[in-house]
Structures are given as structure tokens and as C-alpha cells.
Design a protein around this nucleic acid. Structure first.
Length: 573
RNA sequence: GACCGAGUAGCUCAGUCGGUAGAGCAUCUGCCUUUUAAGCAGAGGGUCCCGAGUUCGAACCUCGGCUCGGUCACCA
């Protein structure tokens, strides 16, 4: 294999790999390696002069090395953390043969390699808890150099910080950047806390279709795909609401799903095309009950993660201690604009918008204008958790009308740090009203609103069989994780945020070059010089090309026989 | 989609007025038996994002493109 297109450090490592094999050591052994302890267990439990850990087996990645003649230290990182390992030549090589230390450990191992260690725990003169290696086993050789991140007294040096590289190669980010893994462990804990709470109450975790013939349950542009066997279009779900409510019709009293949803819209710091939502539906409840349920849930999560209800989010201390403030949308607008819009008609609302300098369109109805006023003037000011209730009916086609006012709905959104976190309804279970609302959506769609909801007649049919009064709630798991872990970008709470695919440079196959008469061993050299396609090569200057090729041969000590100038000319003609 | 910013060694970054491309860590060769952002001495490593233009000469100036980030727009 030609190494010409590899970087220096990669060549060194591949050579080391070959040397290891020549010594009869398998750099990628198949057999299991039984670990009996983790770094954190040692650090938490070891006390000096303690003989508890004289015979331990541990495995992990080499993260740094300090080699000093016959003794060395390296840092071993496992899934829990890091610990220092002390390697002494005459301990790991008790016999005459010092190859394992002098050659394998000192020369052939690198930062990034995964090794197993048997040994005992002790404390160094500097007071650091360390492992004295008795045996060292190579478990996996690493062929690419890791970015080197160093730390001292909690301060990080040379952090691996290029966002593009971090997201594209999250595995590297997770290895070298302390704290990245922690965000994802917390994400998992958030989900588990919710799941445990729901299961304790007897609610059932379910799975509903991701491929849907009608993308319902929300207003958003869907991704579309095609099923070949059925020869029909299918949509990736934008929500799972209508399916979960069908299950309530079917007799489940409580169902929930942690669902990946997909929306074909813009991407930014708070939006990714695929994202996770938890939706839960409970029969015989209303949205007031759901507020209590939601605040209890969030309080639990905060305590589980932080041991307190108080969480720092973007410079604000947010207190998730229940109960949260409840404020109707109209009162919220009154509070932040001084204007009481109660009972106003469409023209009056239009005047209010003008007065507040809010741009509105001729097509905007009452509901949309109220929503705009709230969004512009009040939303961002809701820092502490606040339930905003009683939304205009036009904005909420799946939500039951308010018991006291038919222009409003029994809906709440939970605002935290000026952003929406959760959304809930007393669910609309009147099939006739539901069909009317769907028809209103259809009118919007005919007016050109490409995000109005589709009519789902099967869902209406399900309601016609009778759905018990029900309350449902949805909460964005990505956003919740951002709040609970202090991240201000959704990309930092997703392992693999959506990125534009890496562009592949167009390249001709080696055989095309060989067809020109180029010897196979020279093809990589030609490509290294930047001539990735035959056409590009033909545009080159043959004299310069010949010189460059010979130069490469010499520089990289390839040991090839240089082509004659007339050979090079013959390739290009 | 619009505007702004960034792209230089494996990583983090300098790079003056347009004149032979630099540092730290990493790598390689030595020395070193409790070191720790190890140290000391030496060495190697570059498509300066890509392409065109201006110029005697471009990492640097101009134009076009690519990717990422930020702001806005769109949007449950």
C-alpha cells in the first residue's frame, strides 16, 4: 500500500502497527478483556495504604504519556474518567527481554491507543492516585492522531474547538473534550426520569408510525418520500399526536412516546430537521391537571440532575419549584403592553398592532394577531417558568374550546427563559367540531398557507366512536436538555446534528491513469501532485510534471524508477 | 434565502507594508526510575479552503465558488 497520501503521523502509526504484528502481537485481539474496575471507582474509594486494590484490571485509551528512561507515566481514560498509570520497565519485563517496554510501550504505542492494564493502586510522591502496571495488553491500535487537549487546575489548553470538526467527528469530540459526554449523560437521565415517572403511574410507552400517509398533528412542512411496493407517497411524521389519541380511543388511559419528528424547515441554533419530542395523553384529565403534572415532572428532573430546583440558564437563575405561575395570554399581553384586548374585534386588534409597531398582513385573523402581539411583546420576557393559557381558537385546531369562552381554547404553553418548552391541551374530542376545524384549516390552505393542517378523516372517524375527555402534553426533549445542561445550541445536545455532507473531490479511478501508460506505482504520486482526473493531467506541462514526479520520488524516498521525460509526454499527448 | 465573520502544520493559533510561511502542543532522534500542561538537546512536517484576476512577485489586494459559525427571515 502506498503511504504517499497519508500525513506524517499516520505513516508513523501504520509503521508501528506493522512492527507490532512482526513482534507476534495482535494489535486488534478478538478475545474479551475482563475489566473489574473503573477509574472513578478507584478515585472515589481508594485510600492511601489501603490494600483494597492490589489486583485490578482496567482498560481504556492512552491520553498522554510522560516517558522517562526506564519508567513512564501515562493517562488512561475509560468511560468514567482518567487515571494515571505508572509503567516500570523491570516490572512489566521481569526477564532479560525488555522488548515490551523498550520497543512496544516506548516506541510503538501512541496517544489514542486502547490498552488493558493489570496492576495495583498506589499513590505517587506527588500525591496522585495511580496504577502500577504489572501487565500491559494492546487492545486496539489507533491510526490517527487525536487532538491534544491539556488541562491544569480545571483550565483547558488547546481545546478541540472547531465546531465543524467537533460535530462531524463527534467521536473525537467525546474523547478529548471534557464535559461533552456529561451533557449526553444528563440527556439520558432526563429521559429516564420522565419514563420512570410515567411508568410508575401506569402509563404505557408506545410506538406509532414515523412513515405517515397524512402528516398530521402540527403545522409544518414535512419531508416526503415514496413507498415503492404500495406506490404511494409517504411523509416523515411532523408529530405523533393523532396516533396517540387514536390509542386513547382504543382504550388506553395513558400513553406516551419519545418520538423523533421531522420538519423540512430552516436550521438554526434551536432547530434541527429531526428532533425529539415526548408526547403524553391521559384520559379523563384536563389542561389544568396537566399543568400540575408538568410542573411536577420538571421539578423532579431538575432535582434529579442538579440536586436543586434552581438551574442557571444563559445568565438567569431559573427556579423549577412547583407551582409555576399561570397567566392567560390576554393577561400576559396586558402585563407587557398595558393594553387590554378583551372583547376586541378584528379592526380594533389591527389598530393595536399598528400602535405597537407590529407588522400584520391583510390575511391575518384575530387569533393570528393576538399570537403576534404575544410573540413580539411578551414571550421573551417570560423568564421564570410560566404557563401561558387560553390561546385563540384559530391557532389550535386540535384543542377543545374553552369552557367559559368559545373564542379561546383550553391550551397552555410553558415558557421558560423566554422560550416555549411545552405545549398542552384539553384535547378536542367532539368529532363534529373537529371536522369543522379541519375544514377551516383547508380554507387556510386554499388561501395559500402551505403549513395548514391536512384533513385526516380516519382521525375524525376514530373520534366518532368516542374519545374520553383527555389532556395531552408535548415537550421538546432537545430544548429541555439545552435548558437543563446550559447549552445554547441544539447541536450541543444532539450527538450528530445535521450537517451538509462532506464533499467528495471528484477523482478518476486508478485504471484510467494506468490506461494512459502510467505505471501503477506512479498513479498515487500523480494524484498527490493534484492531478485527480485524467483530463486535468492532460492540461499540465509535461516538463514540469516530469520534474515534479522525480522530485516527489526523491523527497518521499519512494525508491521508484523515475519515468523518462518522453514517457511523461506520451501520457499527456 | 439575505447580510456579517472565519478558513494557515495532526490540534490551538500568530503572520507587520504584497517580498524565502512561524510558535506552542503533538510527531521523530537522543538523555532521564515517582513525573504530571514533565524537562533538556536536536530534527521533520504546509494544496496558506478552491478557482480566476491584478502584480516582477499574493497567505495578504479584487472577483467568483465551497464549508462552518453568527444575525435576521421562514417556522411548532
Amino acid at each position: 500500500m502506498s503511504n504517499i497520501d497519508l500525513k506524517e503521523q499516520e505513516i508513523v502509526r501504520r509503521n508501528s502497527l506493522e512492527e507490532i504484528k512482526k513482534l507476534g502481537i495482535n494489535p486488534y485481539p478478538a478475545e474479551k478483556f475482563d475489566v473489574n474496575i473503573t477509574t472513578s471507582e478507584i478515585k472515589d474509594n481508594y485510600k492511601e495504604d489501603d490494600n483494597k486494590y492490589t489486583d485490578i484490571t482496567i482498560a481504556g485509551r492512552i491520553m498522554s504519556r510522560r516517558i522517562m528512561g526506564k519508567a513512564s507515566f501515562f493517562e488512561l481514560q475509560d468511560h468514567k474518567g482518567k487515571i494515571q498509570v505508572y509503567v516500570n520497565r523491570d516490572v512489566i519485563c521481569p526477564d532479560e527481554d525488555k522488548t515490551l517496554y523498550n520497543t512496544v510501550f516506548k516506541k510503538l504505542l501512541d496517544i489514542g491507543d486502547i490498552v488493558g492494564i493489570k496492576g495495583g493502586v498506589f499513590t505517587t510522591k506527588m500525591g496522585e492516585i495511580s496504577i502500577k502496571a504489572q501487565e500491559l495488553t494492546i487492545l486496539s491500535k489507533s491510526l490517527r492522531p487525536l487532538p491534544i487537549v491539556k488541562e491544569k487546575d480545571g483550565k483547558t489548553y488547546d481545546a478541540f474547538s472547531d465546531p465543524e470538526l467537533r460535530y462531524r467527528q463527534r467521536y473525537v469530540d467525546l474523547i478529548v473534550n471534557p464535559g461533552v459526554k456529561d451533557v449526553f449523560l444528563k440527556r439520558s437521565k432526563i429521559i429516564n426520569t420522565m419514563r420512570n415517572m410515567f411508568n410508575q403511574r401506569g402509563y404505557v410507552e408506545v410506538e406509532t408510525p414515523i412513515l405517515q400517509p397524512i402528516p398530521g398533528g402540527a403545522s409544518a412542512r414535512p419531508f416526503i418520500t415514496h413507498h415503492n411496493a404500495l406506490d404511494i407517497p409517504l411523509y416523515l411524521r411532523i408529530a405523533n399526536e393523532l396516533y396517540l389519541k387514536r390509542l386513547i380511543v382504543g382504550g388506553f388511559d395513558g400513553v406516551y412516546e419519545f418520538a423523533k419528528d421531522f420538519r423540512n424547515e430552516g436550521m438554526d441554533r434551536t432547530h434541527n430537521p429531526e428532533f425529539t419530542v415526548m408526547e403524553i395523553y391521559v384520559a379523563y384529565k384536563d389542561y389544568k391537571w396537566m399543568m400540575e403534572f408538568t410542573e411536577e415532572m420538571l421539578e423532579k428532573i431538575a432535582i434529579e440532575l442538579h440536586g436543586t430546583t434552581k438551574v442557571m440558564i444563559g445568565g438567569n437563575e431559573i427556579d423549577f419549584k412547583a407551582p409555576f405561575r399561570r397567566l392567560s395570554m390576554i393577561d400576559a399581553i396586558k402585563e407587557h403592553t398595558g393594553i387590554d384586548i378583551t372583547g376586541m374585534n378584528e379592526n380594533q386588534l389591527r389598530d393595536v398592532c399598528k400602535q405597537l409597531d407590529i407588522e400584520v398582513d391583510e390575511t391575518f385573523g384575530k387569533g393570528k394577531m393576538i399570537d403576534e402581539i404575544f410573540g413580539e411583546k411578551a414571550e421573551a420576557k417570560m423568564i421564570q417558568p410560566t404557563f401561558i393559557t387560553d390561546y385563540p381558537v384559530e391557532m389550535s385546531p386540535l384543542c377543545k374550546k374553552h369552557r367559559d369562552n368559545s373564542e379561546l381554547t383550553e391550551r397552555f404553553e410553558l415558557m421558560v427563559n423566554g422560550k416555549e418548552l411545552a405545549n398542552a391541551y384539553t384535547e378536542l374530542n367532539d368529532p363534529i367540531d373537529q371536522l369543522e376545524r379541519f375544514k377551516d384549516q383547508l380554507k387556510l390552505s386554499e388561501k395559500g398557507d402551505d403549513e395548514a393542517m391536512f384533513i385526516d378523516m380516519d382521525f375524525v372517524r376514530a373520534l366518532e366512536y368516542g374519545m374520553p375527555p383527555t389532556s395531552g402534553m408535548g415537550i421538546g426533549i432537545d430544548r429541555l436538555t439545552m435548558f437543563m445542561t446550559g447549552q445554547d445550541s441544539i447541536q450541543d445536545v444532539l450527538f450528530f446534528p445535521q450537517m451538509r455532507p462532506e464533499k467528495k473531490v471528484q477523482q478518476d479511478d486508478d485504471s484510467k491513469f494506468i490506461d494512459l501508460g502510467i505505471a501503477p506505482e506512479w498513479v498515487d504520486v500523480v494524484k498527490k501532485l493534484g492531478f485527480l482526473t485524467v483530463n486535468k493531467l492532460k492540461e499540465s506541462n509535461p516538463n514540469k510534471l516530469h520534474q515534479d514526479l522525480c522530485g516527489m520520488n526523491k523527497k518521499h524516498k519512494l525508491g521508484l524508477t523515475n519515468p523518462k521525460p518522453e514517457d511523461v509526454k506520451s501520457w499527456i499527448k
